[in-house]
Each structure stands twice: as structure tokens, then as C-alpha cells.
Design a binder for these strands. Structure first.
Lengths: 172, 172
DNA sequence: CTCAAGTAGTTGAAGATTCAACTGATAGGC
DNA sequence: GCCTATCAGTTGAATCTTCAACTACTTGAG
């Protein structure tokens, strides 16, 4: 089949998205690093742990939750353990299992960081974008996530007529 | 001032966005690596070069275009040079300057990769999302990029009434 | 002209991520 | 019970990114 390039509108939207998210993520990461000595990925790990019963999650569950490889989680948790924000605990029921457990210091660090982080998210995204557009973003990326996680688009969400599409357009 | 947490709708949208983009970028990167031995950042560099007059760009311009640090561009171009996709050329008018120049092999590699890459972008995003939502995404991240690049939101784009906002909500 | 300040790019070490190989434990099948 | 396949997590090397110097060149003030 011949390649269906993007229409120039689609192309523009895609490029804006790429640029915007790049800058957005970089900003959030930098703010966290500068003010709290946390990377964005580390922050996300602390969030997941703080939301879990007992402040603990099995390594693999944590890896899944933040979409990291298991190896990466092992390395990152090792770092967070060194700085005292997280503790490793043997799983009693499964000899192979390990829990990552948020410490009090970790919870305090997260609580501190959360204020400024949310403020960053607002300043860079939420307060800059129309309410409807934020809703659209939520809806759209929910569909994207469903598609990529299940292999097929969620049939309920994808009630979209795929009547595409223009020719024209460059390769990127 | 007391922290303005996100409303639960905003929170849900934000989390969907985080998850969706994480999976999306990972997928695009993986597809390029598996099929063309290119990372997404490398692909983006080749795209910029291919769109430039003479297929060449000064190192700093290139760094700006793809939002990489200068150091990172130096390293990445060194790698791309080793694989023969890019050449370095001294700038005649400025003794400090260096051009990164796309080679024929680089152009061929890019042309090959572009087909499947666009297909990936379609399958994972464009074809999965309502047309209006893609438009909203484009508009929204243009505003985000403007805000982050200039320090202030573009006054034209931000014709938004900032009448926020609910209480409630968790820290992330 | 000369010098100080700034710009373009590079360098190498430190830190983070990926990858493939590995250890140790569990779960079935028989 | 035992043996194999699988699962959970770790390890260390290779790769990529960041960070803080550093070199070399250009610019502009005087």
C-alpha cells in the first residue's frame, strides 16, 4: 500500500505536539531537579507508592505503573534507597518478590515537591490551554493509551469514522 | 498563596496525557530502532537537516530546532557521522562554526524510515483520535510551546478566561 | 590595534537508561 | 518428590545524556 502521508493540518498539529511536549516535560523535570533534587521519573515513582496501600508496591507492579523496564526500576529504586526516600522489603509470601516501600522522608519529600510541581503543570499547561482543549487531550490520549496497551483501539472510544485522507505533505 | 490542586477532571486528563505520550513516544522510538536502527531523536535531526537549504544546518541551529543541548548535538552528530548519515563541514564565514550536512546515505535512510514512521504516527495517534481532538491538541501545544519559549503566553492564542478553579484532588 | 567579553562548539567524566545474561524461587506435570 | 518451564528481580557492560570545564574564534569598546 502506498504511504498515507499526513495532511498539512495533521502535520502542523503533530509538530506542535512534539515541540510542546518536549518543552513541557523538560520544564517539569528541570523544576523538580532544581527545587527538589528529583527527576520527573523519580517523582512519578514516589507518587505511585504514596497512592498504594501501605505505601508499598512490588517492583514489577511499580515498573508497569510508570511504564519503566524492570531493570530501570531496579536501578532507580537503588538510587532512591541510597537517598533514603524508599526502602526495599522482602515479600513474605513469594521468595522472589521485593516491595518498594516509601519512607517517611520520601513522603515528606513528595509532599513538598507536589505543591510546586502542580504549579508548574498549571503554568505550563492547564492554565494556558482552553478547558475544552484539556478535555480533548485527556480523551485523545486515553484512546492512544488504550490502543497501544491492548494492541487494538477500544471499540467504545473509537466511534470515529475513518474517512481519511488528503494527499500532499512532507515526510515527517 | 495556597496551592491550587488540579480538579479531578484535570487530574484525569493530565494522567491520561502522561500515560499516552509515554507509550506513544516509546512506540515510535522502538519502531524506528527495530526497523531502521535510528532513535527518534536521531530521526528528528535527519528531518531538520533534510528540510534545510543545502541539507545543512549550523550545530547551534540544529540544537535549537530539536531542543537538544549543544553538547548533546555534538555527541549525536558524532555518532551519525560514524555511521555515515551526516558529515561535519567547517563554516567558511565563521571560523568557530560547523555545519552538519546530511549525506546521500542519510537522505536515503530518512526516506526509507519516513514511510513506516508516518504509519506508526497514524496507527498510534492520528487514526485513533477524532479529527477535532487532533486539532485541539495542535492548538493546545502551540500555546504551551509559546508559553515556555517566550516566558509569557501568546496574547492572541490565550484568549482564554482564566476563571479557575475547583478544590479537591490529590497531589500528582 | 588591543583587549575583554561573549559566542560556537568540543571534551571527558559522571549519571541515567538499555540490553542481554544471570540468579534464585515458584509452579505444574507426571 | 522431581524436573522443567516460567517468573521476579538483579547485574554489569554498552550506550546515551548531562554537566562543567575548556579551546578557539569573533566582536566591539577604547
Amino acid at each position: 500500500m502506498t504511504t498515507r502521508w499526513l495532511s498539512s493540518d495533521q502535520q502542523r498539529a503533530w509538530r506542535s505536539f512534539l515541540l510542546g511536549t518536549t518543552l513541557l516535560m523538560e520544564r517539569l523535570d528541570r523544576d523538580l531537579r532544581d527545587k527538589h533534587d528529583l527527576s520527573l521519573p523519580e517523582y512519578e515513582i514516589l507518587v505511585r507508592l504514596s497512592e498504594s496501600p501501605e505505601w508499598a508496591l512490588r517492583m514489577a507492579e511499580l515498573a508497569d505503573a510508570v511504564k519503566n523496564s524492570r531493570s530501570r526500576i531496579t536501578h532507580t529504586i537503588a538510587r532512591l534507597e541510597r537517598t533514603g526516600l524508599v526502602e526495599r522489603r522482602q515479600c513474605p509470601s513469594d521468595g522472589r518478590g521485593v516491595f518498594a516501600h516509601l519512607t517517611d522522608a520520601g513522603y515528606r519529600k513528595l509532599s513538598d515537591a507536589a505543591h510546586e510541581h502542580v504549579e508548574s503543570v498549571r503554568q505550563a499547561l492547564v492554565d494556558v490551554v482552553a478547558d475544552d482543549d484539556l478535555v480533548a487531550i485527556g480523551r485523545a490520549f486515553e484512546a492512544v493509551a488504550d490502543t497501544l496497551e491492548t494492541g487494538t483501539p477500544d471499540p467504545v472510544l473509537s466511534a470515529k469514522v475513518t474517512h481519511s485522507s488528503a494527499e500532499a505533505a512532507q515526510p515527517a
